[in-house]
């Protein structure tokens, strides 16, 4: 269970952190659901027994949690690089301020100064986002895992991939051919 969750979780974290790729998550957490489905597919493929929905939920939740941790770890250096090039966290803060709309100029200046001053507030915000994403990615990952098992598992519960070989009767012992009858004289 750990290997499919690690593979899918790391891919999820990287895709969610990169600037252009992370846009896909805006379509109802598509990367998270996709990672859960991928983890379930890998788990079903490598499992000798039929995988249940409960196992799918477990592998999906693990994928989401690992993905959120990797996302947070990747986001910090990416945001620092983007800040050096003039974009990054300030863009997100500006977008959030536009959502609210009529913010008084003093409050707007205060918020801008907090995020422009150093990377401390930005990193704190990323860590807070990461903790929130652990919950959301875990929940949505569970859903992805359950969907994946429902889609890819064709075996019935309790059925194995290679059923045990039928016990064949032992070969009869070798019997040498009977000697020819003596010729009449």
């Amino acid at each position: 269970m750990l290997k499919p969750a690690l593979i899918s979780g790391v891919l999820l974290g990287i895709a969610s952190a990169f600037p252009i790729l992370n846009f896909v998550n805006c379509f109802c957490c598509a990367w998270v659901i996709g990672a859960g489905i991928l983890a379930a597919h890998l788990y079903v493929k490598n499992s000798t027994q039929a995988v249940t929905l409960g196992s799918g939920v477990a592998v999906g939740m693990l994928t989401g949690i690992i993905g959120a941790i990797v996302y947070t770890l990747f986001l910090i250096p990416i945001q620092m690089l983007m800040k050096a090039s003039g974009s990054g966290m300030m863009e997100q803060v500006q977008k959030a301020m536009e959502q609210v709309g009529n913010i008084p100029p003093e409050t707007r200046a205060l918020i801008q100064s907090i995020f422009a001053r150093g990377s401390g507030a930005g990193i704190l915000l990323i860590i807070l986002e990461g903790l929130f994403c652990i919950v959301i990615f875990g929940l949505v990952g569970m859903l992805g895992g359950a969907l994946g098992v429902a889609l890819f598992e064709k075996r019935k519960p309790g059925q194995a991939v290679n059923p045990p070989a039928a016990i064949e009767p032992p070969n009869p012992p070798y019997e040498p051919p009977a000697p020819p009858p003596p010729s009449p004289q």
Binding site: M1, L2, A5, L6, G9, T52, L53, G54, S55, G56, V57, A58, M61, L62, I65, I66, M142, L143, A146, L147, A150
Partner: peptide, 28 residues
């Protein structure tokens, strides 16, 4: 999806997956 999850939870607990998840989190 909530109906699907609702049903999956009883299997999740029956197979003690929550123990495996915590073990795997510690390993990861």
């Amino acid at each position: 999806s909530a109906l699907l999850l609702n049903f999956a939870f009883s299997e999740f607990l029956a197979e003690d997956h929550w123990k495996k998840v915590f073990t795997h989190c510690a390993q990861a």
